[in-house]
Write a protein that binds this DNA or RNA. Structure first.
Lengths: 342, 342
DNA sequence: GTGAAAGCGCTAACAA
DNA sequence: TTGTTAGCGCTTTCAC
């Protein structure tokens, strides 16, 4: 069966016929090459208007190898699926990426890599030249994804330092500096009996935050800091605080490695009748939504996620332009957001 | 300059040469047509392996018109840019869409439509056949986006009922049923002096929630409900609650049209020395992260966002398959999530 | 400045 | 079952 004429989309040739010129000329006009006589430009543009011509991206890509798309790969731990997206962190990264890309008339395609097969699919997506490169957001340690992309020679950059040493460009936060900010603030308030609620030991970022805090405290003349472990949830923070209150009853300053745990700690403190910040000063990390909602509002460490995402995207562009660029990394500085809890 | 052989990517022809067959046969093997002799299949697969062949998506798309991509268009109010993505709602929708798509080996491309030109770009993105259709998530009233897509005859579905009447398929929540759930819960607790903190009057969803609440209360024999207005922020909820406490000092039940306002109300109530839920029962709407973090934990109305997003995606597929399908809508039922505040 | 023609890599008739 | 061939819509030399 022949295709109905109305169904067929308008092509360069159609425009050329209407304008009485060749395909090539129309192509030049569409691509704004300035080697076309302006009278012709005008009539071609008219023809484009009347025909309602829209260029076909696939045909273009086929010849010039540019897709105008990059892959944004979210790599959660296996099977975590949709949960990855519920994290506001993901939204902030996405915002930064989109903001940067839109100025270059490009768009990210979202891939979820939460299983071996999904990881392979993600790689193959880029290799079919659906995308010019990939932004990898890996939330868990030992993620095989970065290695996969690097080995395949596909342009890619990573959010956060790779846990295994992989030659790939990345952006990261200076976690140690962040917790040092918290340490200094606590010390300057006059806190002396200090504890920290650390994150999971298998997360590099959590360890950096812990190490940075301890080191900064030492520099402030407070060599001993009590350490409790949580898993980045509010409940774990609450429990850790309860334990801390037992082991260190006269505690007067706490740094939680993320806001959620700080919120949990806040609850334990309230239940114990300790006032924040008067009895105990408390600092979180992340500047998350709940940290802004809490009472007292949480003093916390903020990271420039959108900015980091934008930088990461620009690094990806560099790599696409110069394929054998050697890996680079950019470390961003966090800020102390003084609110009410410390 | 001739292109270096190593740079050129492996094509069907290369595989064909190695396997000693024709391009067409290789194509058949790649596309798993079962009309190929299994010995040949084997040797072709081997050749694919040794050559490292990866099919070129653009070339495929050019002939079969399928891109394996759909556009996910987030339409914030003008200039709201990245802020749209910070909303966890966006993440949940994305999660639902991705989960549905991945089973069909497809992926969403993210577009932000927060200005007239961005809206046009979004439309043109789909029309260049970069995507087979579009999922429109519009957060504000009077958004011109749905109309734009419908007029262009591009397959599209909408999250939430269009504020202006546009012939487009959509999914939505039964907001009235949601607030009726809240009303019933309040009434059954024995609350009699009841108020609601409504959302902005120009948001259809906010109005439905208000109307549904009033109606359900009437049915419960409580014809009068005090109404305060907020703008969906915690601060506005706090202020509204303060006002309510003045105009209706013996208030014993409050329904806030979203969780953030409920959180604000919770603060005002605590400041006023009212215990929740004993003195005043409080219900929110959305089941957001802060609602789970608060103390007392917020009783709220939850909506099946991921499910709605998945359904929306499947409706888009129907529309792509059958272009002149008439618009359909599917309304989802919310649930009462009883926690501690009511 | 403009047109003719040769592909980009693939699929799908149609032949064989 | 397999190969030949004609495009899909575009860009880009290369002549004119």
């Amino acid at each position: 069966m022949k295709q109905a004429a109305t169904r067929r989309s308008v092509t360069l040739q159609d425009v050329a016929d209407v304008a009485g010129v060749s395909r090539a000329t129309v192509s030049r006009v569409v691509n704004e090459k300035d080697t076309v006589h302006e009278d012709i430009v005008r009539s071609v543009k008219e023809a484009i208007e009347t025909t309602g011509y829209v260029p076909n991206a696939a045909a273009r890509t086929l010849v010039n190898r540019r897709t105008g798309t990059i892959a944004l790969v979210m790599s959660g731990s296996d099977g975590s699926a949709a949960q990855v997206f519920a994290d506001p962190f993901f939204g902030r990264i996405t915002g930064g990426v989109v903001t940067y890309l839109r100025e270059r008339a490009m768009h990210p395609t979202l891939l979820l890599a939460d299983s071996d097969s999904a990881r392979r699919d993600a790689l193959s997506f880029v290799r079919r030249s659906n995308a010019e490169g990939a932004i990898l957001v890996s939330t868990h340690a030992g993620d095989p994804l970065p290695r996969l992309f690097v080995d395949a020679g596909v342009p890619a950059v990573l959010f956060a330092r790779p846990s295994d040493p992989v030659p790939i460009s990345f952006v990261d936060l200076d976690h140690e500096a962040g917790s040092a900010l918290a340490a200094n603030q606590l010390a300057e308030r006059g806190c002396r009996r200090i504890a920290t609620i650390a994150g999971p030991a298998d997360l590099p970022a959590a360890n950096s935050r812990l190490a940075g805090f301890q080191r900064a405290m030492e520099r402030k003349g407070i060599p001993y800091v009590e350490v409790a472990r949580g898993n980045f949830t509010a409940d774990s923070g609450e429990q850790a605080m309860i334990d801390l209150l037992t082991t260190m009853p006269d505690i007067d300053g706490v740094f939680a490695a993320n806001d959620l745990m700080a919120i949990g700690a806040l609850r334990a403190l309230r239940d114990a009748g300790r006032s924040v910040p008067d009895d105990v000063a408390l600092i979180g990390f992340d500047d998350s939504e709940p940290s802004r909602m809490s009472r007292p509002r949480l003093t916390t460490i903020s990271q420039p996620v959108e900015e980091m995402a934008a930088k990461m995207t620009s690094m990806l562009f560099d790599q696409i332009a110069t394929p054998d660029l050697s890996p680079a990394s950019v470390i961003f500085q966090p800020e102390l957001l003084r609110r009410e809890s410390a």
